[in-house]
Design a protein around this nucleic acid. Structure first.
Lengths: 345, 345
DNA sequence: CTGTTAGCGCCTTCAT
DNA sequence: ATGAAGGCGCTAACAG
């Protein structure tokens, strides 16, 4: 039988309350007494039963998730994962609220953060936009003791506690590697379609992609980046224009969302399967395009993992606990049509 | 505040004990009373607090893991993950024992399963070998109400409750896709180095690989499979012979372990970076080879995920609960040198 | 500074 | 067939 607080109390010759004070390093214990208790903990090899502790505490964690609105499939999937987490709220002692804001609008995001602040949650998860007013709003939350985690897109240099998302520079590098190797010695330039340079994840991916193309496939021409605002209609127009302007276009790297438009443009131009396409995020559309051969490779971040990690970290930070970084790392999944998980999505 | 057993008891006008009987559908409750309680559960929207239930029950789960001995890095990493899980035993109410058996030895494995049976655990996780005596031993465990999960390598057609591992046919297909595309129109045959055709995972990978090479890259010659018994020294000898016999060898697909030997042979022959290599499992050796360019792509199964999933499933099955298949799916990770997680391993 | 006492939500004898 | 009472391991008032 593993030792309990009672055993420690007996071993150390003190009361339960004192043991509890030491365990939760609360004040009001003489150093000598503390030592005795810690000694007992050590010799008995005590480890606290977290479930029992939570039961006794009855603590809950009000959490707020802020994410962009719009028809971006990835973001809607992310929201679905947050909703799935609210279902588990009972077991996890969380109370999750979702706030949606217009995409790529720093002002609106800052206001949502202020609104979240008013509600006094234990923590806030936010899909960030890099802008001074957002950074400032995050700082105010942290100054008030509210934990903040950035989700999917980071806000480096801010006061946020943690970033729950992938290494987007590595993602861009991987995209570059696949593009370069898949193209081999085939002729023609490569285009890049991003969502917006306002968000850090897109900027990071671009940086990684350009670095690999430059360092490893230096002879390949890279066209200037075009920004589709993660909007399918705009993306379609832009890609159609690219195909038109560059009949020998060999590849397209799609950094953000709007893959529906990208695919439509390729198909209408009769270039599906001819131009090598590397894109991001597994959605119903991108899955179909991968299977049909219009998209050659898909880099994905698992929204479910990100949401669950964000919740774990927010709870830990709210309790002032450290997190094990390695355990919270989100991986970049690479999907070819051959290793696509059969599941839904 | 969510409702508790007390609320149900009050609402139904019965005692706590009766509510408990209904909740755990134990006998000794009149149908009318049962109905009243179920009605109350329904109207109050009660969901039981599993943590509290476990605390009260004090139930633990004795589990046995059976895995191959030897210097196979992947298997040692797997064992390390099991050991890591034993550390979490306290919180998870598990008591894990590890049994190691000689690799690729069906007789020894069957005996280990019998030994596990004698110890009467709640569940057994086993890295399987496909053989009648193993299938029979698994059946005896199941017939005795002990949950069985195959780990890494499956035993299809047996009575096992679940397989905690990747879709190895898909893994083989992915390897084929990458090999074919990376080689492009470069000349030369492709060799396959397996561990043993006795284990299902190797057979499945081979099947997937051959299918894609045949269907999508039909002009590429495939050499007959050689078996290295997951042994580095033997693998080195075999690969050296292959290189010798086929000066124009374009690619090698390494299905199993022994990558150390593979890499050594390539380096000694001065073929490192020239022959396209796709291999499995991220270990200290394969990581180094990927970074140096000797290995071009690495398919990986996350041993930690597999072990944790196996434990979750064993506990659930031991309690007679269903598992959510989608949640327990283990993914195939693809690593290029650009998306290698920076961590240890 | 330290100890006593009463729960958290659930399960389990033991009576009735 | 049903109920009362005590306890799982921990925390949180409230006393002293």
């Amino acid at each position: 039988m593993r030792p309990t607080v009672h055993d420690i109390a007996a071993e150390a010759g003190v009361s339960l309350a004192t043991v509890d004070r030491v365990l939760n390093n609360r004040p009001g214990v003489r150093a000598v007494t503390r030592d005795k208790v810690e000694q007992a903990i050590e010799t008995l090899g005590y480890v606290r039963d977290v479930a029992a502790a939570n039961l006794a505490k009855g603590r809950t964690y009000p959490l707020i998730f802020i994410m962009p609105a719009g028809d971006n499939s990835f973001m809607r999937g992310l929201e679905a994962e947050v909703r799935a987490a609210t279902v588990r709220s009972a077991a996890e002692r969380t109370e999750i609220t979702i706030l949606t804001v217009p995409a790529f609008n720093a002002q609106a995001l800052a206001e949502a953060l202020a609104e979240a602040h008013r509600r006094q949650p234990a923590g806030v998860a936010v899909v960030a936009i890099e802008a001074p007013e957002v950074t400032a709003a995050v700082k105010r939350l942290r100054d008030d003791g509210i934990a903040v985690v950035t989700l999917v897109s980071d806000l480096p240099g801010s006061a946020r506690d943690h970033f729950a998302g992938v290494d987007n520079v590595a993602a861009g590098r991987t995209a570059g590697s696949l593009m370069g190797r898949f193209l081999g010695n085939r002729e023609g330039p490569v285009a890049v379609l991003a969502g917006s340079m306002l968000v850090r994840d897109h900027r990071d991916r671009l940086e990684g992609f350009q670095a690999v193309m430059r360092d490893c496939f230096g002879t390949r021409a890279l066209l200037p980046v075009v920004e589709g605002q993660d909007d399918a209609a705009l993306a379609e127009k832009l890609v159609a224009a690219l195909i038109d302007a560059h009949p020998d276009l060999a590849g397209i790297y799609s950094i953000g969302a709007g893959n529906r438009g990208l695919v439509a443009a390729l198909e209408k131009a009769g270039k599906a399967g001819t131009i090598c396409v590397v894109a991001h995020e597994l959605t119903a559309y991108s899955r179909a395009a991968l299977l049909s051969g219009t998209i050659d490779a898909l880099l994905n971040q698992d929204a479910g993992h990100e949401v669950r990690s964000a919740i774990r970290v927010l709870k830990a930070k709210a309790d002032g606990l450290a997190v094990i970084a390695a355990q919270e790392r989100i991986r970049i999944d690479i999907f070819l049509k051959d290793n696509l998980p059969s599941g839904q999505v």
